[in-house]
Design a protein around this nucleic acid. Structure first.
Lengths: 284, 284
DNA sequence: TCACTTTTGGAATTTAAATTCCATTTGAAA
DNA sequence: TTTCAAATGGAATTTAAATTCCAAAAGTGA
């Protein structure tokens, strides 16, 4: 950008624009790899086999990994059309985060279009639901899930606590447990009846709440814990207040559209949990 | 590595050693989250929700994302037992590699624990949920959806009818309508109380039922129709008994895993419907 | 072999980020 | 209220990384 002189024909010139995606980058690399000088080729091979390192390493670290000098790394970046390493790294970093849709942008877009047509809104929810499901696979810890199933299968009675937006989740759990003849109680809060006294030491509780957390759910879960019951928490982040209760945590990072969330991931987790518990009880 | 001297008493002290894995980090965060000061908690929530950003962002970027000052980020890192942000980031970066294999790989991984494990079952539900969502866009007729929104936006009161597995759908609708101040009644069937007399000619009904259809839902919808109320049906196929009622049909082909279905698509359709109705009412 | 170009290694410089410091604000206790 | 400790925001400083530069080495063709 600084050299209008033809002194260094290498970097970002008109005929040599920077790749705009990691795919494009590797495509170009494949074409020009064999006409690169020795050290540059050496470095190219290194990042071709360790592409994931680029986003999180420094020039010095990559240089050492490839056993070349830092300056060779710089020359390579410029050869590939970037102004320098930083620009190249930026590309690798943005590509990485593209997997989790940038929901700030998405939300803004939704707002500016108003709510448009119902179908457009539906498309949003579908999209967000898909992303949430995809993310669920990485946020749920298989060991914790297994542990939750064990605890629930052993319990005398299973209690479900969850209100407001969590209520669809607990009510579906209640349906599933009933269908499988698993003794379970849905604490609906209906009629302001307090059914907490039903919770006994050998019982287990499934507490479901997402930020902003429902006080009632937290209170009830805390009291259940005090009686000695085990707690399985379906919640959104590790900093959830349910963590205090030494609960088994199952985390669901559900995305919002406006003020609402799709609940797809939470319900999928819940039903998988319920069916597993049902199956495990039958084996006992 | 350079200071063997105890010159910097801040970081990694005996009672406050730095976590040595990302898991350990989040475990500790879960324990101490509620006794953190406001801004630190705010930042904790941010990275609990966006753990993937830590490896590839600067202090300034994270600070902006969480809407706190850079110095708050530093204090947080030290509170968690690190000497500073750099050390914490190093941890996240070493954990980074291959942390984000593509969706297919993650699914396979969850499954490989054996078909009988809860994770494998969860993988099933996730996949089925995704497929259902994909389907949804083609089974729902945009014109019918728009028509449903119009009818519901015009109604005096909206009644939701749906039991058993449809109940999570209606209860989520109820939550959404309440939050948007749309007059709506959830017919829960609780206490065997019959609230049908509440349905008046200028009202509208959302009836939700899937095969095998719940008799009660069909009966109530039929009677509502007789009083002159409009019916919006969320159901599975065109041959659904609700078709007879000249209902506006919104079709969801939800796939099963064994005896249960994921409900992802139904919930997404319901919430999109509710939000559209809320928006349209505000415009009137 | 010599002259000349390309490539290389490493030091010097620049730039940007991390970290510390401190004056102000906030909130709790007396 | 007043007092004090804790928490906060933002500027100042330090540290580390990226980038440039140049002298030495390795190639290349005459």
């Amino acid at each position: 950008m600084k050299n209008t002189t033809p002194s260094t024909p290498v970097s970002a010139t008109l005929d040599n624009p920077a790749p705009d995606s990691v795919d494009a980058f590797f495509k170009r690399l494949g074409n020009s790899a064999d006409q690169l000088p020795k050290r540059l080729k050496q470095f190219a091979d290194y990042i071709a086999t360790n592409p994931d390192r680029v986003a999180v390493s420094t020039v010095a670290e990559l240089a050492e990994g490839a056993d070349v000098q830092p300056s060779a790394v710089m020359r390579f970046c410029q050869e590939m059309g970037f102004s320098g390493f930083s620009q190249m790294q930026k590309l690798f970093r943005s590509d990485y985060s593209a997997k989790w849709p940038d929901y700030a942008t998405r939300l803004a877009k939704l707002r500016e279009h108003g709510t448009e047509t119902p179908s457009a809104l539906l498309a949003e929810f579908v999209e967000v639901g898909r992303a949430s499901l995809e993310n669920l696979m990485s946020t749920v810890n298989p060991a914790a899930l297994q542990q939750a199933v064990d605890v629930l299968a052993r319990a005398d009675t299973i209690h479900m606590i969850g209100f407001k937006r969590a209520f669809p989740v607990t009510s579906y759990l209640a349906y599933a447990f009933e269908k499988m003849d698993v003794p379970a109680v849905l604490h609906s809060g209906i009629g302001a009846m307090n059914m907490e006294h039903l919770i006994r030491p050998n019982d287990a509780v499934i507490a479901v709440t997402f930020a902003p957390y429902t006080e009632l759910t937290l209170d009830m879960a805390a009291r259940a814990r005090a009686t000695g019951a085990d707690i399985v928490a379906i919640t959104d982040v590790v900093t959830s207040p349910l963590a205090r209760l030494k609960a088994i945590q199952l985390l669901v990072a559900e995305l919002d559209v406006g003020d609402f969330r799709a609940l797809s991931a939470s319900l999928s987790l819940a039903i998988a949990l319920a069916v597993s518990v049902g199956a495990q009880r039958n084996r006992m």
